[in-house]
């Protein structure tokens, strides 16, 4: 058996025949990711008077295959911010490591003012825009939930192009079409945020997760939900959808095998 380093991790020539080295060519144009592989679907979030509620299901799909059912797509940052990732899971893991190193760097520095949600969102938007400018985008749509100065609730998004957006309710992926209208029915504008309680916001987000499970074929009934307030983060990573009712399915007409 060939023990030389260039053979490490490769199929054995004596078993599989000579390896087609054309796959390993180092010349030619540099290529970057042009599509996501393993993906997470929607992230939904809504501001309320004391903070922000954010949720995402625990599924990582490989195309239409529900490949991993225990992937945590909400990430805490320094006990004041929660970041939710939609899109490519490996890019999410890269960003996770990036944020961990940022957190460590911040903890080693002398300053006692931790990065707040707004600071982190600005940082992530620069990272995302830098990568898209290199024609090597991180294939994610990210929500940043937390508090900015004077404990004001903060919620904003950044996508794979580095585009930023802020709103009292936000949803990525399929949720942008299915959950956002439901969220806006309760919280239409910034002024309404003041009158929304924590319980209302949690119930609203749970309702959205349910609707998404009903209608988004890349979603799961297991999800993570986090509530960020000035008292800290309450993150639950193993929630199950409750009180589902598929009765509405009977009435659906117009697609699938049956036509009318």
């Amino acid at each position: 058996m060939n023990h030389l380093p260039q053979a490490w991790g490769r199929p054995r020539d004596d078993v599989y025949g000579a390896y087609d080295a054309s796959h390993l060519q180092t010349s030619g144009p540099q290529q970057h990711t042009q599509s996501p592989i393993v993906t997470g679907t929607s992230v939904v979030a809504v501001k309320f008077k004391d903070g922000v509620v954010i949720a995402a299901d625990n599924l990582a799909s490989y195309g239409s295959l529900a490949r991993f059912t225990d992937v945590k797509r909400l990430r805490k940052f320094n006990s004041q911010v929660v970041v939710g990732f939609g899109g490519d899971v490996s890019d999410m893991q890269y960003l996770d490591r990036l944020l961990s190193s940022l957190d460590i760097r911040e903890n080693y520095s002398t300053t006692e003012t931790p990065l707040n949600a707004k600071n982190l969102h600005t940082y992530l938007s620069k990272v995302m825009y830098k990568r898209r400018s290199d024609f090597n985008p991180l294939w994610n749509h990210i929500l940043v939930a937390g508090l900015e100065h004077e404990n004001k609730p903060f919620l904003a998004s950044v996508d794979l192009l580095g585009t930023t957006f802020s709103s009292p309710t936000l949803a990525t992926g399929f949720g942008a079409h299915l959950a956002q209208p439901i969220l806006r029915r309760v919280v239409p504008d910034e002024a309404t945020v003041e009158s929304v309680s924590r319980e209302q916001a949690v119930a609203l987000v749970k309702e959205c997760m349910k609707v998404l499970f009903y209608r988004d074929a890349r979603s799961l009934d297991k999800y993570s939900i986090a509530v960020v307030t000035k008292d800290g983060i309450d993150l639950k990573e193993d929630e199950k959808l409750e009180s589902q009712s598929w009765a509405f399915a009977e009435g659906i007409r117009g697609y699938g095998t049956q036509v009318n």
Partner: peptide, 15 residues
Amino acid sequence: RLTYDRAIPLSEITS
């Protein structure tokens, strides 16, 4: 200010 939208803490710039 550019990367974090944060006024640098004085203790940080001093160190």
